[in-house]
C-alpha cells in the first residue's frame, strides 16, 4: 500500500502534475524576485494574482476574446503595482503595510466586482467566457515521456517558461539588469553613479505586477477556466517564500518554487490515502516552505559568519 503511493510519486503523470501546479508559483516567485532585485518589497502578490485572475475572466467576458482578457488582466496588475509605487515611493508609506492592506481587501473587492458584473458571489460560472488554449506541439508530443511533459501544457505555462528565460537574460546579461541589481545592493551608491533609481524601482514593480497577474490568470483563464472565490489559496505566498530563500540567487529561486510545487503535488497524492492523517497532508506544502526557509536562514547565517558574504 505504502509502496504503491510512493511509487506514484515517480511517474510521468506526477511530474506533469508538478508542472501544472508550478506555473502560478513560478510566476509569483519571479514577481517577488524582480521587485526585490531593485530593493523594493512587494508582498501584495497574492492580491495582485486575485485581481489579475478576476480581471482576466471579466475582460474575456466583456470583450469576447481570451487574449484581450489577458491584456486587461495585465493592465490591472500593472495598475495595482503602480498603486504600491505611489504609496510607498511618493507618499512615504511602508510597502509592507500597503501589501497587507491590499491582501486584506483583495478577496472582498474581487467579490464586489464579480457581483456587479456576474450577479454571483462565488464564481464566474454564470458568464460565458472564452479561455486560453492548451498547446500540443506536433513532433514532440509523440516522444514517450518527454512528450507528455513538454507538450499538451497550458499556453500560459509556455509563456511562463519564456518569461523565465527572458528575465534571466535581462537581469544577468544586460546593462539594464546590472543597474537594477545595483539599486538593490546599494541605492545610494547607484544614485551616485548616475542611475535613476526611482525609475528602475517603478519599472521592477510594474514587471512584478505583470508577472503576478499572469500567475492569477493562469488559474482563471487557462487552468480552471473559471474565477472561483479564494482560488489563489496561498500560492502567492509560496512565491514570496521562494524569493526569501533565494536571496537574490535566480537558480535557487526557480528550484525552491519547483520544490514547493512538488510538495503541493505530494499533498494531492496523499490526500486520498488512508495512511497519513489528512489534516497533516494538507499542511505538507506549507510545512515544506517553513523547513526550507529555516534551512536557508541557517546556511546564510554561517556564510555571513565565515565572511563569505556580506550581511544584508
Amino acid at each position: 500500500m505504502l509502496s504503491s503511493i510512493f511509487g506514484s510519486l515517480f511517474t510521468t503523470r506526477f511530474l506533469a502534475t508538478v508542472i501544472r501546479l508550478s506555473t502560478p508559483i513560478l510566476f509569483a516567485a519571479v514577481a517577488s524576485f524582480i521587485a526585490a532585485s531593485t530593493g523594493m518589497v512587494n508582498i501584495a502578490i497574492e492580491s495582485i494574482m486575485t485581481f489579475g485572475a478576476l480581471a482576466g475572466i471579466l475582460g474575456s467576458y466583456l470583450t469576447g476574446n481570451a487574449w484581450a482578457g489577458l491584456l486587461i488582466g495585465l493592465v490591472v496588475g500593472i495598475l495595482t503595482a503602480l498603486l504600491i509605487a505611489l504609496f510607498s515611493m511618493r507618499l512615504g508609506a511602508s510597502p509592507i503595510l500597503i501589501g497587507i492592506a491590499l491582501n486584506t481587501f483583495a478577496d472582498s473587492l474581487a467579490i464586489f466586482f464579480l457581483y456587479q458584473i456576474a450577479g454571483e458571489k462565488g464564481t464566474s460560472a454564470s458568464l460565458p467566457t472564452k479561455t486560453l488554449p492548451v498547446v500540443n506541439i506536433p513532433g514532440i508530443q509523440n516522444i514517450p515521456v518527454l512528450g507528455q511533459l513538454l507538450s499538451g501544457q497550458y499556453v500560459l505555462t509556455y509563456i511562463c517558461w519564456i518569461v523565465l528565460i527572458l528575465l534571466f537574460i535581462m537581469i544577468y546579461k544586460t546593462p539594464l539588469g546590472m543597474r537594477m541589481r545595483a539599486c538593490g545592493l546599494n541605492a545610494n551608491a547607484a544614485r551616485t553613479a548616475g542611475i535613476n533609481v526611482e525609475k528602475l524601482q517603478i519599472f521592477s514593480l510594474v514587471l512584478s505586477g505583470m508577472f503576478a497577474a499572469l500567475g492569477g490568470m493562469y488559474l482563471s483563464l487557462n487552468y480552471l477556466r473559471i474565477f472561483s472565490k479564494g482560488m489563489v489559496a496561498g500560492q502567492g505566498w509560496m512565491g514570496i517564500a521562494a524569493n526569501g530563500i533565494a536571496n537574490g540567487n535566480y537558480g535557487v529561486l526557480l528550484l525552491s518554487a519547483l520544490i514547493f510545487s512538488a510538495f503541493r503535488a505530494v499533498s494531492i497524492v496523499f490526500s486520498s490515502s488512508t495512511i497519513f492523517p489528512v489534516d497533516l497532508v494538507a499542511a505538507i506544502p506549507y510545512f515544506a516552505v517553513f523547513c526550507f526557509v529555516t534551512i536557508a536562514s541557517i546556511i546564510r547565517y554561517y556564510r555571513v559568519k565565515a565572511g563569505k558574504v556580506e550581511e544584508q
Partner: peptide, 8 residues
C-alpha cells in the same frame, strides 16, 4: 482540506 483551492 479546503473548500476554495480550486486547483487542488
Amino acid at each position: 482540506g479546503s473548500f476554495t483551492d480550486t486547483a487542488k
